[in-house]
Design a protein around this nucleic acid. Structure first.
Length: 928
RNA sequence: GCGGAUGUGGCGUAAUUGGUAGCCGCGCUAGACUUAGGAUCUAGUGCCGUGAGGCGUGGGGGUUCGAGUCCCUUCAUCCGCACCA
């Protein structure tokens, strides 16, 4: 018998639970460390081998930090609201809470088997009223706040109201949906309803008519990051644009802070870059164009005011308000037809048919602010309504979209930027625009001859002095749409009086999700909550019928873990001041533009309002790579039920068919299992290779059911144990890299653990540990390992630490080392990786407390000092032989020894070496 | 189109950051012990070559005594963003 992982792992999992080993409390005598995994949504499919990758990494890091003397907060919980449970409820009538509970228990069961050091006492679930009470409370805070552009902070709406009462909008610079202007008298004479309507324009959580992504199939609105290429990310259903009155969060107000503060985060450059793109800051100018024979003034945004002399027409988005104002009667019909036609095109078509140029003339002309020339105003769907002002000044010579448009409609193209080396050329010969950000201005009046950068400044200065333009910064980041026409989510703590929304007071929370009879919209198209009885306040005012989206509950959850049972606050000041924020956050890249933006925003609002101590939630972020599947194939001979082995398949015409990887070992098909796998294969025949085996082909693909390449961690744990699973996942390769899972390699790690076990045991599996003094060699093997493993963990290079452990155990095996002085420290440093076997060995060594409470051993540098170095001796840069010399040997001595070595003669061939390079402790290179 | 990442044995990978390319493991080959081997142990295993030796980190070029690592160029794959003015 050797190591019995099954019994041992169960034993210690029970022990940890009973002893509450992983429970943590505030302990001001120790430094804190907060390690968090991204909030999982427990789907019905359960975990596959790729899911725990990040959890294992964070668990190793947590355990390591604990051994290093930190008080480590390492919690886990569930993002329990979500579409799949509700879709299932719609189909079966089963309450989504039940489905969720089942999935969640299954998830927990799987997690428990892996031996994580989570403090389950702190578990939270987003669908728990004690938790979502605080999600609702945060919403109320946003409802009652506005963003002051002057201070760049959220402030109480009361400040704004007070200002309206005394000065109207005169001194207001606040983030809003629409710029408003009124006096104090005007404000004071408005009705309650009118005032409320105005306040909505400023609230951080506000109700407004907006173009939204409507998914008819899911019956709900989706956020921008929940839509990809015109389809819903969940389910892949078509999404259309629709104008609806929706709750939104004024995320755009925080665009600059979200961008600036990225610099202080330890996140990968890749993910910071994705966020920068998503925020999409562009710097330029707003320019006002008069419209000839009209009072209308067209405002446009441009990043290239230096090209203003090249403007030969203007373009409006079809949805733009300007369209109604300036279209002439002669053009009215054509414009109406065009708008009609474009509104029929879906967003998807507009995106895919980028190259199709279309547009219509409004009949009006704008007046060029510098030349006074009249330039035609067109309408085209290549201009986006949602960005800038929905109108652009077209510079066809220097913008590819404007160029295509001008060519199509035969509009003039004027070159105004020139590369001094090439000179100007006739634009009628051009096949594309010249989109350079450098060069000199030509044909450009007051900025003629200036460099682009200087020209931009001069033009803006001129515009500002004439009060027809100003410097302006635009962001791509949109406000987040926050309503979902769904049941399974947090109810809004909002009721309506005289059609205006009012927030409940916090003492009324939680506003519990009511029971309903069916999880479908009502007959008149209201969201499912329209079915709830008495869904109104005590006074009879009706509650909001939408619920909150998935990101609501996951935006501030990290704070709740600090103080999960607090009934008076999301988190106490004391807990928040101690735990601060997340030191290490591990999760996938897929949350780059969703969760990781929303939670930063949400957290900043709470910070501004004084509810949290730091303004960023996640200090360091690591994105683990995906575990891909390794699929196996069999090859069916055409029109038959015969299957030909990989190396013979080229002799036949075959079809490649996925086969379940669980009935393939080392690419060899288990033929009997295959026959039983599916009825259609029961009578299959096989063309085997010479060795009588059926060899499968393989490919690396996404791990998914349809590819039959899903590997379940339970199966692996059953066969090899949790410690082996943990170590193999780490051994596979660098954490942040994607790599395929191939179960066949797991044997190496499994053997390693048994070799380790045998260091402690004799041939009969009896404990055999000696108390003798360790030798220098043994100490060296140990301390090399301690040093490397500690460095590797700090660098999240877990794959190399596993190799290091293997080398150490191989070395100790060769030395027949069974000395307690060595093995005890080895057990400690291994415990973050393989906690079960480490705990077992730790106790076998006579310790009574858990290895979790041990101290990470210090490196004894003195045993690592080498006396000799094995010099590689190169000739012309090619290594020919090695030579062991004391490290104290001086350079000229080394040269003498090397030159006199008989092996050198062969490479020198009697010539005189041109140069001899000696780097002590590194290399000898002789140039012949 | 723009931006980012990655290319090293049959496979997953390593390389003290410019200094012996291929550590560790899988797989494979041979052997030992065994009733047996999907157990264990030993030896070998980048490619070509009997050998001396030659070639070798996607390709080409450069810097250097010395390049997987630095520079230029090019190709391939993956991932973001994509009419954002």
């Amino acid at each position: 018998m050797d190591y019995n992982f099954k019994e041992t792992e169960q034993k210690w999992q029970d022990y940890w639970r009973e002893q509450k080993t992983y429970q943590v409390e505030i302990d001001k005598t120790k430094p804190k460390f907060y390690v968090l995994d991204m909030f999982p949504y427990p789907s019905g499919a359960g975990l596959h081998v790729g899911h725990p990758l990040g959890y294992i990494a964070s668990d190793i890091y947590s355990r390591y930090k604990r051994l290093k003397g930190f008080n480590v907060l390492h919690p886990m919980g569930y993002d329990a609201y979500g579409l799949p449970a509700e879709q299932y409820a719609i189909q079966t009538g089963q309450h989504p809470a039940i489905t969720t509970e089942v999935n969640l228990n299954r998830y927990r069961e799987q997690l428990d088997k892996i031996g994580f050091s989570f403090d389950w006492n702190r578990e939270i679930r987003t669908c728990d009223p004690d938790y979502y009470k605080w999600t609702q409370a945060a919403f109320i805070k946003m409802f009652n706040a506005f963003f002051n552009n002057k201070t760049q902070k959220a402030e109480s709406l009361d400040n704004l109201i007070a200002e309206f009462k005394t000065n109207g909008t005169a001194n207001i610079d606040a983030a809003c949906s629409e710029e408003l202007s009124f006096t104090a008298q005007e404000w004071n004479s408005k009705t309650e309803k009118e005032q409320q309507e105005i306040l909505l324009n400023y609230r951080l959580a506000f109700l407004a008519d907006t173009m939204v992504n409507w998914c008819p199939k899911l019956g709900t609105v989706l956020a921008n990051d929940e839509v990809k290429e015109g389809l819903s990310v969940r389910g892949g259903h078509p999404v259309v644009q629709k104008n609806m009155r929706q709750w939104s969060l004024r995320v755009s107000a925080y665009a600059q802070r979200l961008l600036t503060d990225l610099d202080k985060l330890e996140w990968s450059d890749a993910i910071k870059e994705i966020q920068r793109n998503w925020i999409g800051r562009s710097q330029g100018a707003e320019v006002t164009f008069d419209v000839a024979n009209s009072d209308v003034k067209l405002e446009v945004f441009t990043t290239r005011p230096d090209t203003i002399y090249g403007v030969s027409f203007m373009v409006l988005a079809p949805e733009s308000d300007y369209v109604k104002q300036i279209t002439t009667t002669e053009q009215q019909q054509a414009v109406n037809d065009y708008i009609e036609a474009t509104s029929k095109r879906t967003e998807r078509e507009r995106m895919t048919e980028v190259k199709r140029v279309s547009g219509v003339f409004t009949g009006s002309y704008a007046v060029h602010p510098f030349t006074g020339e009249q330039i035609p105003v067109w309408i085209s769907d290549y201009v986006l309504a949602g960005y800038g002002t929905g109108a652009v000044m077209a510079v066809p010579a220097h913008d590819s979209r404007d160029f295509a448009f001008a060519r199509h409609f035969n509009l003039p193209i004027v070159q105004v930027i020139v590369n001094p080396e090439h000179g100007a050329s006739d634009t009628s010969t051009w096949t594309e625009s010249y989109d350079s950000k450098e060069g000199k201005c030509i044909n450009s009046g007051i900025i003629d001859g200036l460099e682009v950068k200087d020209a931009i400044n001069k033009i803006i200065d001129n515009l500002e002095s004439r009060k027809i333009g100003q410097r302006k910064i635009n962001f791509r980041l949109r406000d987040a749409i926050f309503s979902r026409q769904r049941y399974w989510g947090e109810p809004f703590p909002i009721y309506f009086k005289d059609e205006m929304p009012y927030a409940l007071t916090e003492d009324k929370l939680p506003l519990q999700l009511p029971e309903i009879d069916k999880y479908l919209p009502t007959e008149d198209g209201q969201p499912p909550l329209g079915r709830a009885e008495n869904w109104c306040t005590e006074e009879g005012y009706p509650y909001e019928l939408s619920t909150m989206p998935g990101f609501a509950g996951s935006s501030a959850y990290y704070l709740r873990y600090m103080d999960p049972r607090n009934n008076d606050a999301l988190v106490s000041k004391e807990a928040n001041e101690y735990w601060e924020n997340v030191d290490l956050y591990i999760g996938g890249t897929e949350h780059a533009t969703g969760h990781l933006i929303y939670s930063r925003f949400w957290n900043k609002v709470l910070f501004d309002l004084g509810d949290t101590t730091l303004d960023e939630p996640f200090k360091k972020l690591i994105n683990q790579g995906m575990i891909q599947g390794r699929s196996n194939f069999v090859y069916r001979v055409k029109d038959s039920n015969k299957y030909v082995s990989l190396n013979l398949k080229d002799n036949y015409e075959t079809t490649e068919i996925h086969v379940d990887v669980n009935i393939v070992n080392n690419d060899i098909l288990d033929i009997e299992a295959f026959k039983k796998w599916m009825p259609e294969y029961a009578n299959a025949e096989f063309i085997l290779e010479d060795d009588g085996k059926y060899r499968c082909g393989y490919a690396v693909e996404k791990m998914s059911k349809s590819m039959f390449n899903v590997v379940n961690p339970d199966t692996i744990i059953e066969q090899y144990g949790a410690d082996t699973l943990r170590m193999y996942e780490m051994f596979l390769g660098p954490l942040e890299q994607s790599k395929p899972w191939d179960t066949k390699g797991i044997d190496g790690v499994y053997k390693f653990l048994r070799k380790l076990w045998r260091l402690f045991h004799d041939a009969d599996n009896n404990l055999s540990v000696s108390d003798d003094e360790p030798t220098k060699e043994e100490l060296k093997a140990l301390h090399k390992t301690i040093k490397k493993v500690a460095e590797d963990i700090e660098n999240f290079s877990f794959n190399t630490s596993i190799s290091t452990f293997m080398i150490c155990v191989n070395d100790l095996g060769k030395l027949n080392c069974n000395k307690r002085a060595i093995l005890q420290d080895l057990t400690i440093i291994l415990s973050p990786f393989a906690p079960h076997i480490a705990e077992e060995l730790w106790h076998l060594l006579g310790n009574n407390s858990s290895v979790v409470q041990a101290n990470f051993p210090a490196v004894d540098e003195s045993v690592l000092v080498e006396n000799n170095f094995n010099y590689p001796v190169s000739f012309n840069g090619k290594m020919r032989f090695t030579l062991e010399l004391p490290l104290t040997t001086p350079k000229d001595e080394i040269e003498k020894i090397v030159m006199s070595d008989e092996r050198s003669q062969k490479w020198i061939e009697g010539k005189t070496p041109k140069k001899v390079i000696i780097v002590p402790g590194k290399i000898v290179n002789i140039v012949v």
